[in-house]
Structure formats: C-alpha cells, structure tokens
Amino acid sequence: MRHALALKIGPVSFRIGSAWREPLAQLERLYAGYPAADEVADFTVRLEPATPWRRFARPSVAIRGDYTLPDAAPLPLPLGLLAAEMGMNLQMALGQKRYLLLHAGIVARDGEALILTGASGAGKSTLAALLGEQGWRFMGDEFGLLDPETGFLHPFPRAISLKNAALALFDGADPGRLGPVLRGTPKGMIRHLRPPADAIARMAEPARPALILFPRYGRDFPAEDRPVGAAEVFVRLTQASTNYVSLGARGFDALTALVAEVPARAIDYGSSAEAIAMVERLWAARA
C-alpha cells in the first residue's frame, strides 16, 4: 500500500497499511519507543478509501484487514488514528486464536496481575490507566491475553483510549505521550495516551493472575464491594471474551482454572479516588 507501518504490542505484531500518510504518522508518534516489530506480522490492517474516489473527495477511511466486519461504518479521515486502533482491535477480536482474550484492563505488581473487567462504561480502562500512573505496571486497558499453556497473562499495552470526562484526569501527563484530541467519534471525544515507559519496556513479561475485580461506576454509588460466586465469574468472563468459543477445550481449561484459583469481587464506586483506595485494600487482602 502507499504507506505502511509495523507495530509490536506485547506478543502481537501488526502490519498497518494506509492510503493516507497522516493516520500512520500519528500512530508512529503515539507508539514511539516501542520495540521493533517481528519480521512477520500476526495481522494486517488496511485503511483504505471506502470507494476509490473517497481518497480525495470527503475522504473516508474504511477499516479492513485479515478480518473485516462487512457492515463496519467508515470514519472521516481526521479520525484516521482511531480507525487504525479499531482495525487492530478488530484483528484481535476476530483473529486471535493463541491466547484467550479477556475484555479487561490489566495491571500488575510484583509479577502478579489484577484483572479489571465488566460492562462497557464501568471504568475499567480509566482505572487501569490511573493505576498505571501510581505504582502499578500497566499491562493493557482493552484486552487481557490469557495463555492457556501457562495460565499467565501477557501484556498488551496498546495506547490507552481516554474518553470524554477521563481526558481531564490526565491533563498533567507529559504532552509527548498524548495523541491528538479526536472530536465527534462514535464514542464522543477521544484522546490516546502512550502507556508509561516501564509498561513498554516490560511488555514481554507475563504475570500470574491474582485478583479479578468487576468495577461498576455510578456517581451516586456508595463505595462497596461484595464477593462474586465462581459460576457467575465464569459466565461473566465468557461474556467478556470474544474468542472463548473458538478456542474450544483450551479456552475451557484456561478459564475454569482461572476461576478456580483466582478470587473475585465486585466493586461499586462513585469516584476514581474511592476506586483506587478499594483496589489497594482488596489487593492487600487477596487470598
């Protein structure tokens, strides 16, 4: 293609081709300092005109690649960076067959991982990002990669996708780590944040799962935590995985082992300060 970029994130390499230079230039700035990609990519992403004339006239970016959703709506060119990120997500969601994918934010401390998972909008991404700025190793805000062979989680430290109100929480971050502000996306205002340097330096280092939390945010929620039964944890994690079914017995073995060994709790919170205090307390008290 006209422009191309190779990226390595955790154990996964991407090849991204684009009909336009700008999305890849933004991507390159955002992922500065990441290790060199493998010579062979796991996945190919293509950003191309939805129709041939759309390269110039009101350019709109179709998200395609090894795996494509036929009805995915194209994005306007100024959101090309978001299109690239969505393209990589799509390849993982539809094409990743080595690791069990958990839709979760993951952070680690002393080689042990905390899994933050739950419904969209529960704040797991923001929480993982905040914890990554205060003493935890950030491993990912979108996908946890559970290795069925070892039971360990592999980091997948993509750029963090800050949405709407969460942007203000990172105003103090080094401007060099921030991408452009993307307005008018399907999810409102988005800005990407490069993970902390140690998250990138240690992105080949897996961690053993030690605690699963299901956060739930509500401005009026009292800060509370409660146990979640193993069967419910299992069901919720299958729902949080895009490839559980296609991994077959490997997925079953990996997930039942995870649920049997790792304690889980649900937490409600009304502010991120509350949430972080709860996380620290539950982490210290984990079985």
Binding site: A230, V245, A260
Partner: peptide
Amino acid sequence: PLEGLIVLYHRPSGMT
C-alpha cells in the same frame, strides 16, 4: 464443579 453447579465442556459440539 463450581459452587454446586457443573460447568461442562461437550467435546462433540465444542460447546460449554
């Protein structure tokens, strides 16, 4: 077994 319930993987179908 998980808390009195059984999670079952059925090999012929690949379903849980």
